[in-house]
């Protein structure tokens, strides 16, 4: 009978999962978005680890600075190559927490918000890898990729090109402050997201959440 036994998950997961029992709000105006970015030791979700997570929430189309998270994680695995990019050293000055604490804080912060990131699949994969190590299921949130969203603003040309955050910031005239810190990138992505949404809203009246979220079948793609 053990097969049917319900998994017993920690309280923080149950609280998180309970948020999804209600139907997802489709009206963009009332949707809470959490824009986030992870800095990692490398690009392989299986072997690499998250160094830091930065988030910032958007409520009612306003970036809410008080609704944010900036977490630095303790490290066992360390890749000296990527230090050049993010500048996070294994023993930095910022206060660090365990991976488990980080994920607990993250889930508690995001609840059922729509997650937004640039090339979101990677960041989601990194978080899901953490969840797996903690023997927890995958993230349940709706997901928006700003790279995918940008391609939606284009006509058929170059639909499949890959656009880096730097390229898009240049196109949209967004100053690159604190690039390559999780919080800095989250903020830049948030501005980019607002610009893209406002552009798409002009193109299509009555824009809904389902118009901009990533189709579920694409989330696994990296």
């Amino acid at each position: 009978m053990g097969w049917f036994k319900k998994h017993t998950y920690p309280d923080f997961w149950n609280t998180y999962a309970d948020c999804f029992k209600r139907n997802q709000e489709q009206n963009l105006d009332n949707t809470r978005f959490v824009v986030f970015d992870t800095e990692t030791t490398g690009l392989n979700p299986k072997t690499d680890r998250i160094l830091s997570i930065g988030t910032i929430a958007i409520n009612n189309y306003a970036i809410t600075v008080s609704d944010q998270l900036e977490i630095y994680l303790e490290q066992d695995i360390f890749n000296t190559e990527t230090v050049k990019i993010h500048g996070l050293l294994k023993t930095g000055t910022s206060e660090k927490v365990t991976e488990e604490t980080a994920i607990t804080q993250f889930l508690n912060h995001i609840n059922n918000a729509v997650l937004v990131a640039h090339h979101v699949a990677f960041d989601i994969a990194m978080i899901n890898a953490c969840l797996k190590r903690m023997a927890l299921p995958k993230l349940k949130n709706n997901i928006i990729d700003t790279g995918f969203l940008y391609r939606k603003t284009l006509t058929s040309v170059n639909q499949n090109s890959h656009y880096s955050l730097d390229e898009l910031c240049e196109k949209f005239n967004i100053p690159l402050h604190d690039r390559h810190t999780a919080s800095g990138d989250a903020y830049i992505t948030a501005i980019l997201f607002l610009k893209l949404v406002s552009f798409l809203k002009q193109q299509k009246s009555g824009l809904q959440l389902s118009d901009i979220t990533l189709p579920k079948n694409r989330i696994g793609l990296l």
Partner: peptide, 9 residues
């Protein structure tokens, strides 16, 4: 720690 708030200030 809130890098974004620091930038705003």
């Amino acid at each position: 720690m809130n890098t974004i708030a620091l930038r705003i200030s």
